[in-house]
């Protein structure tokens, strides 16, 4: 998956985790928590969905890389480069 496709995949996950939020104006460089109601359990849902959908295991020490869309895409790009985008 290319970075743009990864971003789309994360948006899809977020839309399920925070279904009341409008994600159309998400600022990629700002932490998720500063833009939406996202607590620690929700954050773990992002990790869980990546595990279920793409079989990616993210070690706990790497969680700080996932605080914003920009950080998440950067972190996941090498991990997901060989994963095809979902239809």
């Amino acid at each position: 998956m290319a970075p743009g496709e990864i971003r789309h995949a994360i948006l899809d996950i977020l839309s399920r985790i925070v279904p009341d939020e409008d994600l159309s104006n998400l600022n990629d460089s700002v932490p998720f928590r500063d833009q939406m109601e996202l607590d620690s359990m929700d954050f773990l849902d992002i990790v869980m969905e990546l595990r279920k959908r793409y079989r990616i295991q993210i070690p706990e020490e790497d969680y700080p890389n996932l605080i914003s869309m920009q950080g998440t895409v950067s972190y996941l790009t090498p991990l997901m480069k060989d994963i095809p985008a979902r239809a």
Binding site: R16, I17, V18, P19, D20, E37, M41, D42
Partner: peptide
């Protein structure tokens, strides 16, 4: 309830 509350 919000949708998120229902999900959680």
């Amino acid at each position: 309830q919000k949708k998120k509350e229902l999900r959680r």
